[in-house]
Design a protein around this nucleic acid. Structure first.
Length: 637
DNA sequence: CATGAGACCAGAT
DNA sequence: TGGTCTCATG
């Protein structure tokens, strides 16, 4: 999707290049995009839960091609779906279900062609499929990361911190996120199109003068992944509006004056889109910490529940790391297995859920798996994992059980000490976040005496399980930091042997520590999961039960009220006048500020925010400042 | 002139 | 599915 019709606007700076132009460079790759194209090959098999290598080989072929041209790929997978996109995810799932039914009906009638078409609609990418790819990537020593939520901000983050030299994707949203070099339209001959931000000035249009805020306005007005846009406003109109009015407040005032339909719903979407473009949750593979695409400004005062609804929630470091290294399912947080592995293994012998023996004492050397085991005394694995997931997801207020989780998993570092060399300095990065999460009980950093050569940690960083690692041996006397490494270095080796057809797999798999402790589902449970694919859709939200409670608190109620009483417009204008001075000094696109912002890619400088913004905090005075807040924070903060 | 609806295609045997 | 193209409409 991306920003509708943005790419044609940039035609003049779309340079036809070859992958050889990136020889020796690393490119972030939108893995989901590649996977999706691979679905065509095997959609029927996927829908009917039959094993297939189609999507795997299609992705690996592209990997091979990149490497043939001397380009090192860095694959980025989508993670969980954002709460704000939950509706879309549900819709898609339903559409797929309908298509699947239709396909099966066509099959019954013997209309294979029509069935094939429907299967194509019905096939979706699941994290289990992504895992199948990841195992191949491990084997080929290809770097990858699973984004906590969306791949787009994750890829831009990788570019920002210098891990990649460009981004290979078809999504024009990336430019709004702040991508510097976008490479699109790659064909089988290594030909592609490069869009370099540095070339924007060559356009006849004024895009090069646009501030990051204006880029976001452009996307939001014309329609992007986060907003439907305004009816009758396409790219050109949006461009002109942004050019003419400059700031979001002015734009809103103008739209109001021209009686364009700016609904409260649109304002809400716009507000959240603006946050998502700036502060989406990402994972830093260098530090092993969660981060945000851009840092929150020091006086960032938006309700974190709102921020999390559109940018993603915070997870415990263990889960976050596990998810991003592809070890845990991004939505359910259960151990993630390859689709092909699960199918190949076949149904387990019917047996009651295994009760794991009580684990006592020595909790100091406990892994996350053993934590799961302990809990399972009381309930079934699936119930347990779900309850754990719920608890961890609801980090806003820690329940007694969540506190128990913390006790039982003594890994309390806010950052996983992947490499202490980086750990110390990077830890400061999340300080602003902490400040804004005052209601969240943050784990206290642990003074770790743990030191390990950086090289020895490389398998952890890359998720490369082929590299022999001492931590894959049973847990003994392990330093605090190693525990995570231990659980994360799962036995992909065994998975590999399974994929390559080793017959011992079916028997041995159940006895592996990892499996016995975390995958002791009954066969019926496994089957039903594989069957429906319901929990496994990549769009699945980790928090379907906490459906935007903030809405009732603020937006829906307040905004609707304001609009109904037709004071919204008045307020907006008032506000615009009130803040005119501020706007002029703060957000007017001057040559220098625009250039500086583009060059540094710092989409939000704390210094850009005036002190008056502090008054507009949702949390402080939600009632009266809501409409203002919507407009104001939407584009300055 | 811009928008948006509708048609068409994709990869490999 | 999602991307690209064409063509009717305002």
């Amino acid at each position: 999707m991306g920003v509708t019709n943005l790419l044609p606007q940039l035609k003049e700076i779309q340079v036809q290049i070859s992958l050889t132009d990136y020889k020796g460079k690393t490119l972030a790759v939108d893995a989901y995009g590649w996977l999706h194209r691979g679905l065509i090959l095997c959609s029927q098999d996927l829908c009917q839960d039959r094993p297939t290598q189609g999507y795997i080989t299609s992705v690996m072929k592209k990997i091979d091609m990149l490497r043939y041209f001397g380009v090192e790929p860095y694959l980025v997978f989508d993670g969980a779906s954002l709460p704000t996109k939950e509706g879309t995810a549900l819709e898609r799932r339903e559409k797929r279900r309908v298509a699947k039914d239709a396909a099966n009906n066509f099959l019954k009638v013997g209309n294979r062609k029509a069935a094939w078409k429907e299967f194509m609609k019905a096939a979706g990418v699941t994290p289990e499929m992504a895992k199948a790819i990841m195992m191949e990537l491990d084997r080929k020593r290809v770097k990858y990361v699973v984004a906590p939520y969306e791949a787009d901000p994750q890829m831009v983050y990788l570019e920002k911190i210098g891990l990649v030299d460009g981004i290979l994707s078809e999504d024009s949203d990336l430019l709004v996120f702040g991508c510097r070099k976008l490479i699109t339209k790659l064909n089988d001959y290594g030909e592609c199109v490069e869009i370099d931000r540095a070339n924007l000035h060559k356009l006849k249009t004024e895009y090069h003068r646009f501030t990051p805020e204006q880029w976001r306005s452009l996307a939001i007005l014309s329609g992007c992944d986060y907003t439907k846009g305004i009816a009758g406003v396409g790219m050109k109109t949006a461009y002109n509006i942004v050019l003419k009015h400059g700031t979001w407040e002015a734009i809103c005032a103008a739209l109001e004056a021209e009686k364009k339909p700016v609904s409260a719903e649109f304002l809400e979407e716009a507000f959240k889109a603006n946050l998502a473009f700036q502060f989406s949750k990402v994972f830093d593979p260098v530090t092993g910490c969660a981060a945000t695409l851009n840092e929150y400004p020091s006086n960032f005062a938006i309700d974190m529940q709102v921020v999390e609804s559109c940018c993603g929630r915070s997870q415990s470091p263990e889960i976050q790391t596990g998810v991003c290294l592809g070890k845990l399912h991004p939505s359910t947080h259960q151990v993630l297995y390859s689709r092909e592995l699960l199918l190949k293994r076949g149904p387990l012998p019917k047996a009651p859920p295994k009760i794991v023996e009580k684990v006592t004492a020595s909790s100091a050397s406990r892994t996350i798996e053993s934590f799961f085991s302990v809990q399972k005394q009381a309930t079934s694995t699936i119930q347990l994992l779900k309850s754990v997931k719920n608890q961890v997801d609801r980090t806003i207020k820690l329940s007694p059980n969540a506190k128990k989780l913390k006790r039982l998993t003594p890994i309390t570092n806010n950052c996983v000490p992947v490499s202490s060399k980086f750990f110390g300095s990077q830890n400061a990065k999340i300080a602003p976040l902490k400040e804004n999460l005052t209601q969240i009980e943050m784990p206290k950093p642990v003074e770790s005496s743990y030191e390990k050569p950086f090289e020895a940690q490389s398998s952890f960083l890359t998720g490369d399980s082929d590299i022999p690692d001492e931590s894959s041996s049973p847990i003994k006397d392990v330093a605090p930091g190693e525990r995570v490494v231990n659980y994360l270095t799962d036995d992909d080796d065994d998975n590999d042997s399974c994929l390559s057809g080793t017959n011992s797999m079916a028997n041995s798999i159940v006895d592996r520590p990892l499996f016995s402790s975390t995958l002791t589902k009954s066969s019926t449970e496994l089957e039903s999961e594989a069957d429906e694919g319901y929990e496994n859709e990549i769009e699945e939200s980790p928090i379907k039960f906490t459906v935007s409670s903030w809405r009732s608190q603020f937006l829906m109620k307040e905004s609707a009220e304001l609009v109904q009483t037709s004071t919204a417009a008045k307020l907006k204008v008032e506000r615009a006048v009130k803040t005119k001075k501020v706007i002029e000094t703060e957000t007017k696109p001057t040559k220098d500020s625009a250039a500086a912002a583009l060059v540094s890619q710092e989409f939000l400088q704390p210094s850009q925010l005036s002190e008056s913004d502090a008054d507009l905090s949702f949390t402080k005075t939600p009632k009266k400042t809501l409409a203002f807040g919507l407009l104001r924070f939407a584009f300055t903060g």
